[in-house]
Design a protein around this nucleic acid. Structure first.
Lengths: 204, 204
DNA sequence: TATCGATATTGCGTGTCACGCACTATATGC
DNA sequence: GCATATAGTGCGTGACACGCAATATCGATA
């Protein structure tokens, strides 16, 4: 995660990756949610200062490049939860972690709008948000002491959290909306987070 | 939904749609999760008895055709919830509706495995499951008397339910697993369903 | 039942894309 | 400073999605 932790090659690689992804998102935003077809691979590559073939070494579709930032963000949720104090109740820890992660740099409304409101990006956007589920489920399992192999709670909760973030984003983008993103996230997450995992009566 | 409720033309349309989708899924299963590239559009069209161009009138990608059944299934969740008795508590109603819908015809394990375990299908599979969210959120809002414009509860719960179904499916597919799909669904849904919507302290 | 009109199906052409392969340039480690 | 692993690139290919226009087919109505 820290650039210092990576060797020089990996850092360069990461840099071009971000250059491509950033260029892709920027160009997509310029054309708006209905002009995605106008964003050609050649343009993205040129804007990022690489050849089209190189673009394709990093991403296997335009959608993937455009949504890469959201995907990376999602991947960090698990780690964010792990960095919360261990004695914090699960619900508060998750809420705090998510809010911190999604509002530390001012969230990019244009980018989120592009990703969530472009029909051709729907699948990739869902993939991006669902990237949080795996690591998050593990972090939840670690925190609650549940075995993710037997108990569905961690995976289900992780999926629910990812869904709540998505819904919060959607509502945040809605036209007449004055609330902050943090507020929307808290409202959404509160809907599905119990303080402790339920006892499943079927558990053995 | 009832065939009788549709125009004859619409019924034929639906029939070819299903023929194409069915052929696509069948061919995909034959090649397995790692041979999706071998399923050509031409093969799907031929197997369905239509021209390649016609296939493309119904679906705009192979992935969409393959996942169409799951998508249709998801679309029915809202209606299934509405058909539960009005005095049933929300959690029980949702659980009963989902189990009924997903186990009435014996669930197609091979199809589910194909859809959920094929990397190239991941985005489309997520889209398919998320198809449930819209109608389901409306049904939940209707049942709980909440205004989906102001309150995030219906949308968030719908997303959580869709996620829980997904996770249940994933676990159901896991190798050493003797439980029935219904059991997995109940376990998963129990993790995220409160009997009643929470009071959001921020509500006004 | 015969005819008309709407609609589904199809063929063709086009632009784009993803990717395998082989070659070159670059920089990393010794 | 040199050998070598790794990133970047050019070219060629196969497949795909889709617009357009012509045709076949079906369903309703008199």
């Amino acid at each position: 995660m820290n650039d210092d932790a990576m060797d020089l090659r990996a850092r360069n690689s990461q840099a071009t990756r971000e250059a491509i992804s950033h260029a892709a998102l920027r160009l997509a935003i310029e054309q708006g949610p209905n002009g995605l077809a106008l964003v050609r691979v050649h343009d993205i590559a040129t804007a990022a200062g690489v050849s089209p073939r190189t673009y394709n070494n990093y991403f296997s579709s335009r959608a993937e490049a455009i949504c890469a930032f959201q995907a990376d963000q999602s991947r960090r949720v698990g780690q964010a939860l792990r960095s919360r104090p261990a004695d914090e109740p699960l619900d508060q820890a998750v809420i705090a972690a998510v809010i911190e992660l999604y509002t530390d740099p001012e969230p990019d409304k244009a980018g989120l709008r592009m990703i969530m409101l472009t029909p051709e990006l729907e699948g990739e956007a869902l993939k991006a948000f669902s990237m949080a589920e795996g690591p998050l489920a593990e972090a939840i399992a670690a925190r609650t002491g549940t075995d993710p192999g037997r108990d569905l709670f961690p995976a289900v909760t992780a999926a629910a959290v990812a869904g709540a973030i998505r819904v919060a984003g959607r509502h945040w983008l809605e036209p007449g909306n004055t609330e902050s993103f943090a507020t929307m996230l808290r409202s959404a997450l509160t809907c599905i987070l119990p303080a402790e995992p339920h006892e499943d009566p079927r558990d053995r």
